[in-house]
Design a protein around this nucleic acid. Structure first.
Lengths: 344, 344
DNA sequence: AGCATGGTTGACAGCGCTGTCAATTTGTTT
DNA sequence: AAACAAATTGACAGCGCTGTCAACCATGCT
């Protein structure tokens, strides 16, 4: 089973191993006829090149690394799935590498990883996508990489992002459309810059409707469920000025808000509307189900991997910056503004 | 940075490359003095062997694969983390390989993976741990593997499991201790055999307290949140015979039960106690927080990886079957049986 | 016909390491 | 001290592939 070597193929096709190598690597200058003979032999023997030999002889390793430091299991799994899918098709292996953002030595650690595991290219997820030292180190080494959902444009650092700004804008407009005027906002972890854009979208939507954003309604969160709870308590402490809706920068925090609301015996969405961001599984697991923004996490990772592989193959040009769309998902946690206690 | 080869080390230490190789691979018959000199040279040059060359020349690839087909992102991430941790320490890489259990060709696909990626050994997670064709194929190939949380003893197929049976027994006893007599049970996916044991533990606990298990209280679930909801609806449809407590075989299903209870305006734990299994993050994200059983998912994966690596190194003997303990985590979703409406 | 030109092919030398086996050193025995 | 066994070390031949470079072939041109 698949024990054939390049020599076997060469013998069967009646060519030299070098020619087989050319066909396998899709190099130019092989006569179509020859190419076909070789391909037939390959198929017949079910030949698969030996990765170790390839990477030893050539420069490539056919391995790309996926770097992450993200507390959300769901997010990571989705990114992995997307990246693996693309890599498998292209004959690349994916090496997953959890890391620690707070490690001051991170850039070095990554360099070591690249050298040691002979990494061809890397995929960076937030918050690594925006860590200057890491990006600079990669740029300096000349190791290809693609950033997933970064906030900033960095010269020569390609990325795939979603339009967080617009999505937050739309969600806020939706809440305003429901009659809400006092809309609390729980922002994301300050390091996750992508999340900064969500705040901007929120503010802009408010402004576009002539509502003055109030600082007391904007709470600093840290992406965790617990920070959502804390944020909710802070928002609700002044009885009268209480917002009638809360927009959290991710679902975990929104779930925290909802839990606090339950504890305070607030009716959702009757007394309080809550919206999240990301559409993680928890959005459907809490009660009531959460209105949120669906991110194309998996397909974004696929795209990023595709971009990276194209880079590795030398086709560096076109589309080094890709923006993908996300969509509002309206569920049961949002409804018309309180006083009227509308039907919904 | 780390570009040193074995030749450099050999030159610096004043020995042949073969001796360096011996030291690196911890082979016997190297004089302590020589060994020390070599180790110093290695440290000085920050030498790391080239994986490709190693696997090309030798038989090993220093790669182990982690196979899974599990809908729970949290579970998978924890297993990955545990396995990676152990592998890194030992200088092995971990290749993650999501697969599809329903694929009738699965065993072949895995064989191909092993051959193609030169996998040294594999880690199987449920439900693959108990798939006969897969295990048999591996046994036939002679490829080392370790099963995580399987249900069955299979000759020559080492595993690391937790005492699900006992944990389910204890949880049930705890509920009985709270005064509950009508305790519903939502079992897990029939393929996830490990989950079968939980049902056995539940029944046994009932029996041990002189309570006759009733079939109408035992519902077939499928590990998903949705199947928890469905199970709850089934349990609650007959008004009077309604159980006062529900024990679900995992947290997702327990969350489903709680959601249905909320919809039916049942007070938890006043009107209904709910317990889960696994202690996934959702247990803390729902309201009220969920009483559950904490599984040592990550450390179990670490152990499994250790066992596998020992196997790869030829130390096949001792402890081919390891059982680890799980623990009850009492939170707010369980309380004294209804009628009295006790304080808690 | 004679000669560049460029497309097509193969011979060959490694990539950095490990397995084999023979050479050397060291320790033991009588 | 000679003879032997065991421990220690190194020379060398690949593992399966790719990069280099030279050889070859088919054109189109003068």
């Amino acid at each position: 089973m698949s024990r054939a070597t390049i020599d076997d193929v060469a013998a069967l096709a009646g060519v030299s191993i070098k020619t087989v190598s050319r066909v396998v690597n899709e190099e130019p200058n092989v006569r179509p006829l020859t190419k076909e003979r070789v391909m037939k032999a390959i198929a017949h023997l079910n030949y698969r090149p030996n990765t170790s030999a390839r990477s030893l002889a050539g420069s490539r390793s056919y391995i790309v690394a996926l770097l992450y430091d993200n507390p959300s299991a769901n997010y990571v799994i989705n990114v992995q799935d997307g990246a693996i899918k693309t890599c498998r098709q292209a004959g690349y292996d994916l090496l997953i590498h959890p890391c620690d953002c707070r490690d001051p030595n991170l850039a070095n650690e990554i360099s070591t990883l690249i050298v040691q595991s002979r990494i061809d290219g890397l995929l960076l997820t937030p918050p690594l996508s925006d860590m200057e030292p890491v990006v600079q180190a990669l740029l300096a080494r000349g190791t290809p990489f693609v950033r997933i959902a970064p906030v900033g444009h960095l010269k020569g650092a390609p990325y795939v992002a979603t339009n967080d700004h617009e999505a937050a804008f739309e969600m806020t407009r939706y809440l305003i459309g429901l009659g809400h005027k006092d809309i609390g906002f729980i922002s994301g972890h300050p390091d996750h810059c992508s999340v900064v854009r969500r705040l901007a979208g929120y503010k802009e939507a408010l402004a576009s409707c002539g509502i003055q954003p109030r600082d007391s309604l904007i709470i600093q969160g840290y992406n965790s469920f617990a920070s959502g709870e804390a944020g909710a308590r802070e928002l609700f402490q002044h009885g009268e000025g209480r917002p009638t809706a809360v927009f959290a920068s991710n679902d975990d925090m929104a779930a925290g808000v909802i839990k606090v609301a339950h504890e305070m015996e607030l009716n959702i969405p009757g007394d309080l509307s809550v919206a999240g961001f990301d559409d993680t599984p928890v959005a459907l697991q809490i009660w009531p189900s959460l209105t949120t923004v669906r991110q194309p996490i998996k397909s974004r990772a696929e795209k990023a991997a595709q971009l990276l592989l194209e880079n590795l193959r030398g086709k560096s040009p076109a589309g080094r910056e890709i923006i993908m769309d996300s969509a509002l998902v309206i569920r049961d946690s949002t409804g018309p503004c309180a006083p009227q206690r509308g039907g919904n």
